[in-house]
């Protein structure tokens, strides 16, 4: 009887402690910004894709590689002066937004489309657009289909947790064409099911379709239709409400575009510091205090360009003729008729 009584008292005490322990924590507020958190930690945590050739994937050496991955490295180079100080978290399409919202990762660079709802309701902040994409449709050449109207009654393979799903629905609804979606969690499974003939077509961003087709057994049997179902501006994003960190990401991306515009690349960056162009001087931190205002070393863009390169170098390495061979199209600089327009560097 007595032992039981002490157990009760012990439990009681424990519960009181729990309640008391909960109390003071409620008053605590996060005061440290994400940038300071990263500096204290010593490396950047970057959410990325692990199975999309060209953008984010594991190469045979077991390292992450790709267009998106290089932007992660560029951010690490800007913050620490060392592009290797980055930890990659491979995420599925469905996992990526919660991972950012919960603060598990610092920045998400995983071909994520900038949409109104994601920006507002999901409480995320895009930093910039690194790649202007559009949703397309891949079908077997044998069907002879040219447009979505030809696809009456078709089954379309699609990866869930993406805007693709809704664009697909909108595109077919607008055309009054009956179809059935088949939703997979992983892009690789979607592609396998399509290649096995479970679906009549596969939809995704055109860049992704090109990447997936390149990995197929017989790429020549599949054609990407000349249909664009949506605007897909892809770019890095950070959690809502931390403007300082968002600014860092944004200006690193714009800095790489500006470098291309100003003719600076990884081979000539050391010499360009002596240029007379004030924009170049500010970009490379020879003049002005742009780095300090972001909370970074003044020469952060030198490190980025030296270790990663400018926008063109990154594009050509992964998406150029040696890689996925996607024409630059809208991803040219504004001076060459494209959409890339870095804001004024001053």
């Amino acid at each position: 009887m007595k032992g039981k009584l002490y157990t009760y008292l012990a439990v009681l005490l424990l519960l009181v402690l729990v309640v008391v322990a909960c109390g003071p924590q409620e008053q605590e507020e996060p005061t440290v910004g994400r940038l300071q958190l990263i500096k204290d930690r010593g490396y950047v945590i970057c959410g990325c894709n692990a199975e999309l050739p060209g953008f984010g994937y594991l190469n045979p050496q077991g390292e992450f590689e790709g267009f998106d991955v290089d932007f992660c490295r560029a951010i690490a180079a800007a913050v620490f002066g060392d592009a290797t100080k980055v930890e990659f978290r491979p995420l599925t399409a469905a996992e990526r937004l919660p991972a950012l919202q919960t603060g598990e990762i610092d920045v998400l660079i995983r071909n994520t489309t900038w949409t109104l709802t994601r920006d507002s309701a999901n409480e995320l902040d895009w930093a910039a657009v690194t790649f202007y994409d559009g949703q397309g449709m891949m079908v077997p050449v044998a069907t002879g289909w040219q447009t979505l109207e030809d696809m009456e009654g078709a089954t379309v393979c699609c990866t869930t947790g993406t805007t693709t799903e809704m664009n697909l629905s909108d595109a077919f609804r607008a055309r009054g064409v009956d179809y059935a979606p088949l939703l997979f969690e992983k892009t690789q499974d979607t592609a396998t099911a399509y290649e096995e003939g479970r679906c009549d077509g596969q939809t995704s961003d055109k860049s992704q379709l090109a990447a997936l087709r390149s990995a197929m057994a017989r790429p020549e049997d599949h054609v990407i239709l000349d249909v664009t179902m949506s605007k897909e501006p892809l770019g890095p994003l950070t959690a809502h409400g931390d403007n300082q960190w968002n600014d860092v990401v944004r200006w690193v991306v714009w800095g790489m575009m500006q470098a291309e515009e100003s003719g600076i690349d990884s081979t000539n960056v050391d010499q360009m510091g002596s240029s007379d162009d004030p924009t170049i001087k500010r970009l490379l931190g020879v003049e002005g205090e742009v780095g300090a205002s972001l909370g970074l070393p003044n020469d952060f863009m030198v490190k980025v360009i030296k270790q990663i390169g400018n926008y063109e170098e990154v594009y050509m390495q992964h998406l150029g003729p040696g890689g996925l061979d996607i024409p630059r199209g809208p991803n040219l600089l504004w001076t060459e008729g494209g959409l890339l327009y870095p804001m004024a560097w001053r």
């Binding site: 469905a94 937004l97 994601r118 309701a121 999901n122 947790g161 993406t162 799903e165 809704m166 939703l183």
Partner: peptide, 9 residues
């Protein structure tokens, strides 16, 4: 639900 939470946030 997975689709729902992704589309609605």
């Amino acid at each position: 639900s997975n689709t729902m939470l992704n589309q609605s946030g």
